[in-house]
Computed example of a mutant assay.
Amino acid sequence: MKEGPDISLVAALIGDPARANMLTALMDGRALTASELAAQAGVGLPTASAHLSKLTDGQLICPRKQGRHKYFQLADAEVAAVLEALMGLAASRSVKRVRTGPRDAQLQEARVCYNHLAGQKGVQMYRSMTVRGLLVEAGEDVRLTERGRAFVADFGIDISALQEGRARLCRTCLDWSERRNHLAGSLGRAMLTRMEDLAWVRRDARSRAVLISPTGQAAFSAAFPLD
């Protein structure tokens, strides 16, 4: 007897190599065109369009029209979290790409996961904030403490504005390369944006890597110590 949601349908959508490459390409939070996603998947435009239609019908991505152009992005943070978890599962089972390169090390140090900071630096930020009592874990939930609110305000983030939005303030996301949590939610997104505003980090235009300046390395270590 079958019980619960049918995971085979979602698994089949993600399991196709071309669609998996498209979904991975959207993990940096950007909206991409069908042509851009076709290049990422290594397929022709008609084939890419068919794949995108299936992903849209499966509610894993959503289309957006801007002028004459049509863009696609991940449906929501929940889809991104599932993809990140699957990457971790694949890595733990040694199911990896054959070819590696310099960007692999950059991705493991710091990368964009949907719209927040992941990798070694993302895990360091989360661990530092929890050890210092700025964040408190309660099972799979995490919340910002009063000390945390003061820290975030000093960091230059308007918590009140974040709470007015529909997105959850704090969420955990299991990091695929570190196998530990990093911070997601609207606060995770705001923290990464603030680091970009401070010129600590910048996004690599050709990958999900987040590149950290020498000044940013020192400032990040001071703001999020582990000792």
Score class of each variant (00 low, 15 high):
Lys2Glu: 12
Asp6His: 09
Asp6Glu: 11
Ala11Phe: 09
Leu13Cys: 11
Gly15Met: 05
Asp16Val: 12
Asp16Pro: 10
Pro17Asp: 11
Pro17Ser: 07
Met27Asp: 07
Met27Ser: 07
Asp28Leu: 11
Gly29Arg: 10
Ala31Leu: 01
Ala34Gly: 02
Glu36Val: 04
Glu36Arg: 02
Glu36Gln: 04
Leu37His: 01
Ala41Pro: 03
Thr47Trp: 11
Thr47Lys: 14
Ala48His: 08
Ser49Lys: 03
His51Gln: 14
Lys54Leu: 14
Thr56Ser: 14
Thr56Leu: 07
Ile61Gln: 07
Cys62Met: 14
Pro63Arg: 12
His69Ala: 13
Ala75Thr: 01
Asp76Val: 00
Leu83Ala: 05
Leu83Lys: 05
Glu84Tyr: 15
Ala85Leu: 15
Ala85Met: 15
Leu86Asn: 04
Gly88Glu: 15
Gly88Trp: 15
Leu89Ser: 04
Leu89His: 04
Ala90His: 03
Ala91Val: 08
Ala91Thr: 10
Ser94Glu: 11
Ser94Cys: 10
Ser94Gln: 13
Lys96His: 13
Arg97Glu: 06
Val98Pro: 07
Val98Asp: 08
Arg99Thr: 14
Arg99Ala: 14
Thr100Glu: 15
Gly101His: 12
Pro102Arg: 03
Asp104Arg: 11
Gln106Lys: 14
Leu107Gly: 10
Gln108Ile: 13
Gln108Tyr: 14
Glu109Cys: 06
Ala110Met: 13
Cys113Pro: 03
Tyr114Lys: 04
Asn115Ala: 08
Gly119Cys: 11
Gln120Asp: 09
Met125Ser: 11
Arg127Lys: 05
Arg127Gly: 02
Arg132Asp: 06
Arg132Ala: 08
Leu134Trp: 01
Leu134Thr: 00
Leu134Asn: 09
Val136Gln: 03
Glu137His: 02
Ala138Pro: 03
Gly139Gln: 09
Gly139Cys: 04
Arg143Ser: 12
Arg143Ile: 05
Arg143Pro: 08
Thr145Tyr: 08
Glu146Ile: 15
Glu146Ala: 15
Arg149Ser: 15
Arg149Trp: 11
Ala150Phe: 10
Phe151His: 02
Val152Cys: 00
Val152Arg: 09
Ala153Gly: 06
Asp154Met: 06
Gly156Tyr: 04
Ile159Lys: 09
Ile159Ser: 08
Ile159Phe: 09
Ala161Trp: 05
Leu162Asp: 06
Gln163Ala: 07
Arg171Glu: 10
Asp175His: 10
Arg179Ala: 10
Arg179Phe: 08
Arg180Val: 01
Asn181Val: 00
Asn181Lys: 04
Ala184Asp: 02
Gly185His: 01
Ser186Gln: 06
Leu187Asp: 11
Leu187His: 07
Ala190Gln: 05
Leu192Tyr: 13
Arg194Val: 10
Arg194Ile: 11
Glu196Arg: 13
Glu196Leu: 10
Leu198Trp: 12
Ala199Cys: 14
Arg202His: 03
Asp204Met: 03
Ala205Arg: 09
Ala205Phe: 06
Arg206Lys: 02
Ser207Gln: 05
Ala209Lys: 04
Val210Gly: 09
Ser213Pro: 03
Pro214Ser: 07
Thr215Met: 04
Gln217Pro: 00
Ala218Met: 06
Ala219Lys: 00
Ala219Trp: 02
Phe220Met: 02
Ser221Val: 04
Ala222Met: 09
Phe224Pro: 01
Phe224Met: 01
Phe224Leu: 03
Leu226Ser: 01
